[in-house]
Write a protein that binds this DNA or RNA. Structure first.
Lengths: 189, 189
DNA sequence: ACCGCGATGTATCGCCGTGATACATCGGTC
DNA sequence: GACCGATGTATCACGGCGATACATCGCGGT
């Protein structure tokens, strides 16, 4: 989850923790935050298993004073070969884990590096997931509508509309995918 | 959070765990699930601090065989006086904790038992929370739009529209509240 | 020249909720 | 009379969150 996101961002360029978090926010947007409380431990774990490494760049600078003062500089991470492999693997996995609430957004964010067939499968998986949920809400609403106070009803209906909207969005995306060209890409003249 | 929800549901009628979870799903809808993994421990804690109690109803039945077989029946919980107090207190708290993502839905679900002024304050708090987020996304979008691939862009814009929709919904609710009558309630003739 | 302050930067900790799993009972159906 | 899905209670490892701590940097104000 977080790991996939980190791998994906580091795939573009080496980054340090703070930057990583900014990019996370900018890339995932409203969808998910990811606090430092999960980011730093995650970075440590990924470093320990060797998917990422500290990129000390060119450490040709003075080697005396900094050490004495306990000076702590930025810690820049970059992908290792293993990390790249792992990232590629993760992008081909189109199982349920790819279309759950928490996961889908991250997978989607890296769709431009995902195989077209996998993309469609994930989008469809996500859609049926939401369709199930929609039916659940609908039937629950049918059977309990009269018993609910107006606020609860309001909440239910707002939720239902959100899901419906999401389904429409996915349907459009799927059609676009099927049509061949991902968003814009006019055929060569 | 879960505690508020449980208190609110038990306020209507005594329930056992399984039922509680069904009601949770039906009441909160798409908004939040709450698994047994949090429900049962929470019930235990709330019982320990005395907000709820096991309602053994009329235990006038046979007292022999069941005990011998280690028979485990339903465990029905009901609110204690303390629990009712605590619930009332929670409903008057209109702080940031009431309009965060995870919390808002639960508070909203019990609006019919919440003071009108508190309702408006929570709705407004929620709205400004979302407006902040919206501005964040917008400015991040303004400054990075050109650098984003079409999928990331798609995700951003979908997220932005979701937030905008939510804000509109809240604005309508606030206006309805201000107009006096919570959804339906004609003034006495 | 100095102070303060907000942004940058790394890190930890307790809390809460999830999803998987286990296990037992009950009411039907074939 | 055997099976099965719904009902019912419970636990555990795991992941992420929010608060918090602390240090540095660059900047504007006086």
């Amino acid at each position: 989850m977080l790991e996939l996101a980190v791998l994906g961002l580091l795939h573009e360029s080496p980054l340090h923790g703070y930057e990583l978090r900014q990019r996370l926010k900018a890339t995932l947007g409203t969808f998910r935050a990811f606090s430092y409380g999960s980011l730093y431990p995650s970075l440590r774990r990924m470093r320990d298993v060797g998917w990422i490494a500290e990129d000390d760049g060119n450490a040709e600078v003075v080697a005396g004073a900094p050490a004495l003062t306990g000076r702590r500089g930025k810690i820049v991470y970059k992908l290792t070969a293993e990390g790249k492999e792992r990232f590629a693997e993760m992008l081909t996995e189109a199982g349920p884990s790819a279309w759950e609430d928490e996961t889908f957004g991250v997978h989607f964010a890296f769709f431009s590096r995902t195989d077209p067939e996998v993309r469609v499968r994930i989008l469809e998986g996500r859609r049926s997931r939401l369709e199930e949920r929609r039916e659940g809400v609908r039937s629950s609403l049918r059977s309990t509508r009269s018993r609910l106070d107006s606020y609860t009803l309001q909440l239910q209906e707002h939720g239902l509309e959100s899901v419906e909207r999401e389904v429409r969005w996915l349907t459009e995306l799927i059609e676009t995918e099927r049509r061949g060209a991902p968003p814009q890409q006019p055929p060569a003249p």
